[in-house]
């Protein structure tokens, strides 16, 4: 079996390491990393590439004024959130999702999509991508679907299979708009996934960017 299909592609991890990946995709990569030792190792190496690239830049002198201001401020610095009581999170929930899920998956306002599927939207990214959790009942199927853009999925609990294979906890799956697939949850338990679906269209020009909110609204 081709294990590489259950991990983010190298160039995607590189973009994550560079900090240039859209945050919605970074969320999926981050959720995957908590489960994947080899991608974590890969990331450490990619960070080194970033570090070496940074060191190759021609240094841009910093003023003494900046240095002195910083040195003067050191005594008054405190870590922003030291006293905050660390909340008890369900350890099975990836850390990057704590900002959306603080009490466990069961407490979320799930909405019924079909007999087999419930979903809850977590947020939108600035590129219009929709970030949601999907819950498929044991043995349930997500009807054959295609997407308008790429779809990124990370399995958080349970497992599912589709035409290309079996996916289990932590697996990272990318499907592009051409892929038609029918995911089916395994019989033993329900399957919960983090899913990021890209918006239909993304404008990046200055004037056309103003249209984006209108388009996004249409993409509900």
């Amino acid at each position: 079996m081709d294990r590489s299909s259950n991990h983010p592609a190298y160039e995607l991890l590189a973009a994550y390491s560079a900090g240039s990946l859209p945050l919605s995709q970074a969320l999926c990569v981050s959720a995957h990393l908590e489960h994947c030792h080899s991608c974590t190792r890969q990331l450490q190496r990619l960070n080194r590439v970033g570090s070496e690239l940074m060191q190759q830049l021609k240094p841009a002198k910093a003023s003494n004024d900046l240095k002195n201001r910083l040195l003067d401020s050191l005594d008054s610095l405190t870590d922003e959130a030291p006293a905050e009581q660390p909340k008890r999170f369900d350890p099975s929930i990836p850390r990057c999702l704590h900002q959306f899920v603080d009490q466990g998956y069961a407490e979320l306002p799930w909405k019924r999509v079909s007999t087999d599927i419930h979903s809850v939207e977590l947020c939108r990214d600035n590129n219009g991508a929709k970030v949601e959790l999907l819950k498929i009942r044991p043995g349930g199927s997500a009807t054959t679907h295609t997407h308008l853009g790429d779809e990124y999925t990370v399995i958080l609990e349970g497992s599912f299979s589709d035409e290309s294979g079996l996916y289990k906890q932590g697996d990272f799956v990318v499907k592009d708009a051409r892929d038609r697939h029918t995911p089916v949850a395994t019989q033993d338990r329900e399957c919960i996934c983090l899913a990021v679906t890209e918006g239909p269209i993304q404008f990046t020009g200055f004037f056309s960017r103003l249209l984006n909110p209108l388009i996004r609204r249409g993409y509900a």
Binding site: G19, L23, S30, M54, C96, Q99, R124, D125
Partner: peptide
């Protein structure tokens, strides 16, 4: 490098150039 990268992402988000609802703090 990783600190600089994280700070840059924070900065872009704080200054509205990354109007995302996702808080990057726990992502990296």
């Amino acid at each position: 490098f990783t600190l600089a990268r994280n700070c840059r992402i924070d900065y872009l988000r704080r200054n509205g150039r990354y109007v995302s609802e996702i808080d990057p703090t726990d992502l990296f």
